[in-house]
Structure formats: C-alpha cells, structure tokens
C-alpha cells in the first residue's frame, strides 16, 4: 500500500502546487489589503447580511475568521470534491482504475492509499496557505491593531483542514457508491453548498435551528474569538469523525463495487427466469 500511496502523491504533485499557490491569493489579497480597509470594515461590524453569511468584519480577527475560516475551506473543498470523486469514479470511467485493480493489490489498500493521498495533499495545500498567511501577517502586523499573534493566524487557517478532509472523504464515499462521477460530484457539491447556507440560516432562523447539527459548516467557527482561541475540540472531532465514517463507507462500497460497470449498489445483476 505504501508504494501506491507514494505513487498517488506523485500524481497529485502538480495539483498540490497549483492549488497551494492559487489559494495563497487569499492571504496575499485579503490579509495584505486589511491595513488599507480596516477603518471601513469596522463600520460593517453588525450588518445582518454579513451575519447571515457567517461573517463578521469588525476586527482583524473577525476579518480573518470570515475569510480564512468561512470562505477558504469552501474553495479548498472544491479541490477535495474534485479529487475525491476523480480518484475513484473518475479513474473508473476513464479506464485507469481497471489497470490498478488488476494489479496484485487488495481493494481496501487502493481506497486507503487514495484517501491518505487526498488527506495529505489537502493538508499540504493548507500548510502552504497557512505559511503564506503567517508571512503576510508578519509583514502587516505593525500597521494594524490586533491582539492576535502569528501563531494564532497559522493555527486558525490550519483549523479549516478537517472540514476539507471531511468533504474529501464524503466525495470518495459517493464516488464508490454512485453510478457515475457526475452523480458523486453533484451530490457532494449540494452537500457543500447546502451546508454553508444551511448552517448560516439555521444560526439566524429559529425554525431552522434544530437542523443546525446536520450542516457540516456548523462545525467551523468563523468568529474572531475562534481565530484567537482556536476551534472547539468537539467541533474538530465531529469533522474528523464525519471524514472517518465516510472513509469506512467508501471502503465498504468500493469492496462490493462492480467496477467498470457504472451501476448503483442496488443494481445487481439478476439472472432472468
């Protein structure tokens, strides 16, 4: 399995560099620009529209939370959805998975290696963005008023990774379960989008409050307080738990999947009478 993991990581090398550098525009632009917009942002502190989007812009910590904890994981999750569905269903559809499953490798090792490669590659992307965020922060630190230190920002950015991991594993499970990559990508995207709007609406609408725990974004705290003090450990454990359960489901459904056929699990072949 180690050999396959190494290979899977090699395959993702360029993607990791591309996404890592691409997502660096977030800290370069949004953190870098903060000193020049800080006064204006203070005026938006209590706007309901931003609150509905899970954002608060009053202080630098709030600003960082809104951008790097609320928005960045949404964008990074696109990588994990694309990679999670592509590595199983995508490779199955283009035929490369057939080459892999006809090697002397058990299927659980194939899924595990691919899941680890996805988790590691997304963590590296996050690491790149966190380091760049830290560098940008150190460059502007003297121009802003904040109680935050560089370590807070680094940790705050990295704290978004469990969400990206969970979305990646959900995407892998759906890729092993659905009949095609198209369905898997579609359902994963719906989970991502509904999770974002659902958690924000549930937080601000009494009638939706009972549904709040079902939205993944609920477990990402984008407030300035969370940026300084860190994400709740329970929330992080929930995200990691969702990722782990999804991974186990991916293992189970890939094990029984009729590869190359492109069928849902209930579409088993039946001999006609």
């Amino acid at each position: 399995m180690f050999r396959l993991l190494v290979q899977e990581l090699k395959f993702r090398r360029n993607t990791v560099i591309g996404w890592g550098l691409g997502l660096c525009f977030f800290p370069l632009m949004y953190i870098g620009i903060y000193p020049s917009v800080a006064d204006e942002m203070a005026g938006f502190a209590d706007l309901e529209i931003y609150q509905a989007m899970g954002m608060s812009l009053g202080t630098f910590a709030d600003w960082v939370g809104s951008i790097m904890i609320v928005l960045l994981p949404l964008i990074a999750a696109i990588y994990s959805i694309s990679n999670g569905t592509g590595t199983l269903a995508g490779e199955e559809e283009d035929g490369r998975l057939e080459m892999l499953v006809t090697l002397p490798l058990p299927r659980w090792q194939i899924v595990t290696a691919k899941a680890l490669a996805l988790a590691i590659s997304s963590a590296i992307i996050y690491l790149i963005v966190s380091v760049v965020s830290l560098i940008v922060f150190l460059a502007i630190e003297s121009q802003i008023e904040t109680v935050m230190v560089g370590k807070d920002l680094f940790n705050a950015v990295m704290a978004g990774w469990p969400f990206v991991f969970a979305m990646g594993m959900i995407a892998m499970f759906l890729a092993a379960f659905c009949s095609s990559r198209r369905f898997a990508s579609m359902i994963s995207t719906v989970i991502l989008v509904v999770g974002y709007f659902g958690s924000n609406l549930a937080a601000s609408t009494k009638v939706l409050e009972p549904f709040e725990p079902f939205f993944l974004n609920t477990y990402l705290d984008g407030t300035g307080k969370a940026v300084i003090e860190g994400q709740g450990i329970e929330d992080t454990l929930v995200l990691l738990g969702v990722g782990l359960v999804s991974f186990i489901l991916a293992l189970i459904f890939f094990q029984i999947r009729k590869l190359t056929v492109g069928a849902w699990p209930w579409q088993r072949g039946k001999v006609e009478a």
């Binding site: 283009d94 035929g95 490369r96 080459m99 006809t102 002397p104 490798l105 058990p106």
Partner: peptide
C-alpha cells in the same frame, strides 16, 4: 484469492487507459 492470483497474471485490457 484475487490478490494472490493477480500476482501471477499479466493483463492487457481492451480499453487501455494510461497515465
């Protein structure tokens, strides 16, 4: 015993897809 069997098989698929 798929894994053990495949250790001794060389396979060329009809719908060849490569990296």
């Amino acid at each position: 015993d798929g894994v053990e069997i495949r250790q001794h098989i060389g396979y060329l698929p009809g719908e060849l897809a490569l990296y």
